[in-house]
Design a protein around this nucleic acid. Structure first.
Length: 437
DNA sequence: ATCGGCTCGCGCAA
DNA sequence: TGCGCGAAGCCGAT
């Protein structure tokens, strides 16, 4: 288990159970905590372990033991696979996830299967190449939706789980477990979002009940309206299945259904298409030619204002809207979708070159967002630089890249009220911190 | 308040 | 080869 950290609606898990049952063999589940995952810190590990603790309990109820190990998969997994008939894993799209799987496959003697469960239409089934935009991927996905929007039957292993003595990380006290791990602690846990499938299911139910109707309306672009699903951190750690979400939303009779499924399926899977087929997905080089051409042409344009990474990270710009966005991200681990775009666009405006802007935006996104380092995050940052978008009217610095400014925020919602809300939030957290001291 | 212009490449139809 | 079209844009004209 790696990218689908859940007991529910997990095709890799069900496939493993089925194969074990066919062979009348016991099943063992394993997860390897890699404590030096690039750019991950205490915030992300906390969220992840909260989820794994629940998953371990949920699996135990179904008679499956989940061992939690610490170390790179190529060292932790092969010893477990020594006497195994076969090994089943979930799928990974990022460079490091693909390397983990390759390394494990090379180090074991038994067959290994990789099962898609974090997508609805598998990345290779949707397209065999990188797609230029949603416009080209959408029909490919739509054509096959019926085939893949099928509920998954859950089963139980017939043989009792192996009771081997493995040095499993004890998750009964997550704080304690985290203290023992040699992880980056530069960013603290989110005070707002708790990890785990149960919380994910609560978010989903709440979203369908009270938010879905407004999805796709202009209310969705207003961060003051609580109109988002907030599911992206849970999707990132595989604590909830996109198929399960899609099936649940599909059941609802709501005008927002189409707009939400567009996000969940087309836009999300376009991101997976991006990281899977574009080896430079985490760099400026991943941009389309027209975007690189126009950005390079304007790379030496005079900037009205430039900021260093430190100034940006500490939310010290002249723009109170941008500062509030940065603060929301740092404080909560999640920034509203619309503000993320504004946030990214402004970094282009305020840095010495688009290459530097890309590096800074990705760095901050990966460090503070709970769903950082996700295919969606890489595609989201690249979008600010023209990826999956089209050229627009030429202007300094941006060239033909889509431009955004504060007038747009004001047009769409009461941005000053939103800034006050973020300030209040920061103040409240400060008070809480002082009280616990 | 609404509308066209801005501008490029993809993919389908002819 | 032609043509329609595309994540949330802005901006100036009407």
């Amino acid at each position: 288990m790696q990218s689908a950290q859940r007991a529910q609606c997990n095709h890799a898990l069900e496939y493993a159970i089925r194969l074990a049952n066919e062979r009348q063999k016991p099943l063992l589940a394993a997860f390897s905590v890699v404590s030096d995952f690039p750019e991950a810190n205490l915030r992300h590990y906390t969220f992840m372990l909260e989820g794994l603790k629940e998953t371990q309990a949920a699996l135990a109820e179904r008679g499956i033991k989940l061992v939690i190990l610490n170390g790179p998969p190529k060292e932790t997994i092969p010893p477990l696979a020594k006497k195994a008939d076969l090994l089943v894993t979930d799928e990974g799209y990022l460079r490091i996830q693909r390397k983990w799987r390759k390394d494990v496959a090379a180090a074991i003697d038994c067959p290994m299967y990789e099962v898609t469960t974090n997508m609805i239409v598998p990345v290779e089934a949707a397209s065999d190449k990188e797609n230029f935009s949603a416009g080209t991927l959408r029909p490919r996905i739509s054509r096959q939706l019926k085939k893949y929007l099928v509920p998954l039957k859950e089963s139980r292993p017939v043989c009792s789980s192996l009771d081997l003595r493995f040095k499993s990380i004890d998750l009964s006290d997550i704080g304690k477990a985290l203290k023992k791990l040699p992880i980056d602690r530069s960013v603290g846990p989110s005070p707002f979002y708790t990890g785990g499938s149960e919380e994910a299911n609560r978010c989903l139910a709440d979203f369908i009940r009270s938010k879905l109707d407004d999805y796709g309306t202009k209310k969705q672009q207003d961060p003051l309206q609580d109109c988002q699903s907030n599911l992206s951190p849970y999707l990132h750690f595989g604590q909830i299945s996109p198929l399960y979400i899609a099936l649940e939303v599909n059941e609802a009779q709501s005008p927002g259904k189409g707009a939400f499924l567009e996000q969940l399926i087309v836009r999300r899977e376009l991101s997976f298409n991006f990281v899977y087929y574009n080896p430079a997905y985490d760099s400026y080089k991943s941009l389309p030619h027209w975007a690189l051409r126009t950005l390079n042409l304007h790379a030496r344009d005079k900037r009205e204002q430039t900021y260093s990474l430190e100034q940006l990270e500490n939310a010290r710009t002249y723009d109170p809207y941008w500062n509030a966005a940065q603060k929301e991200m740092v404080l909560t681990g999640k920034l509203h979708n619309y503000m993320r775009m504004y946030w990214g666009k402004k970094i282009i405006e305020w840095t010495r070159s688009p290459k530097e802007a890309f590096r800074i935006a990705l760095y901050l996104n990966n460090k503070y967002e709970l769903d950082g380092r996700d295919p969606n995050g890489f595609a989201g940052i690249a979008w600010c630089f023209g990826k999956h978008d089209r050229p627009w009217a030429q202007r300094p610095v941006f060239g033909k890249i889509r431009y955004m400014n504060a007038a747009g925020l004001k047009r769409k919602f009461d941005v000053d009220a939103w800034v006050r809300k973020i300030e209040q939030l920061g103040h409240n957290l400060e008070c809480e911190r002082n009280q616990t001291r």
